[in-house]
Amino acid sequence: IINNLKLIREKKKISQSELAALLEVSRQTINGIEKNKYNPSLQLALKIAYYLNTPLEDIFQW
């Protein structure tokens, strides 16, 4: 999986903590996703895309 979450999140000036709060997950979860240590569920990936107002395929590429 190619993961552009960190790049997109930083472009939008959103911290890991802010995104985690919006998604109701821990900051460690966001960190793990960004470091490719954790693959989000489809539901979480869709929520990330929604809150970042970015197409899912721009954030994650399988």
Results as ranks from 00 to 15, higher is better:
T29G: 03
Y51P: 00
Q61W: 11
K12R: 10
G32E: 15
T29A: 10
E34W: 03
W62S: 10
K12T: 07
E18W: 07
N36Q: 11
S26A: 06
V25Y: 02
Q61S: 13
I2M: 11
S17Y: 09
F60K: 00
K47G: 07
P55A: 07
N31L: 11
R9V: 02
E57A: 11
E18H: 12
I48E: 00
L22R: 09
L56A: 05
L56N: 01
S26E: 07
Y51K: 06
I1K: 09
I33A: 02
E24S: 13
T29I: 15
T29F: 14
N36H: 12
P55R: 08
L44H: 03
N3G: 03
A20G: 07
I48D: 00
L46V: 09
Q61T: 09
K6S: 08
F60M: 02
A49G: 06
Q43F: 10
Q61G: 15
A45L: 05
Y51T: 10
Q43V: 13
K35S: 14
S26I: 02
N53E: 15
V25A: 03
L46Q: 12
Y38L: 12
A21W: 07
N39D: 08
F60R: 00
V25T: 06
L42P: 07
I8E: 05
L5H: 01
L42E: 06
N3Q: 05
I2D: 08
A45C: 11
K13I: 05
L22Q: 12
S41W: 06
V25G: 02
P55D: 08
Q61Y: 14
N36W: 07
I30W: 02
P40E: 01
V25C: 06
I30F: 03
N39I: 15
N4T: 05
I59K: 00
V25W: 02
T29L: 15
A45Q: 10
N4W: 05
L7Q: 14
P55F: 04
I33M: 07
K35V: 09
K6C: 07
I59M: 05
L23E: 00
I59L: 11
Y50F: 14
Q43K: 13
K11P: 02
A20D: 02
Y38K: 12
K37T: 13
Y38P: 03
L52I: 03
Q16L: 12
K35Y: 07
K37C: 13
Y50D: 07
N31V: 14
S15P: 05
T54N: 03
P40F: 05
N3A: 04
N39H: 15
N31A: 13
N3K: 02
Y50R: 08
Q43E: 12
A21H: 12
I1D: 06
Y51V: 15
K37G: 07
I1T: 10
K35N: 15
D58M: 10
R9P: 01
S15Y: 10
P55M: 07
L44M: 08
S15G: 07
Y38M: 13
I14R: 04
L44P: 01
I59Q: 00
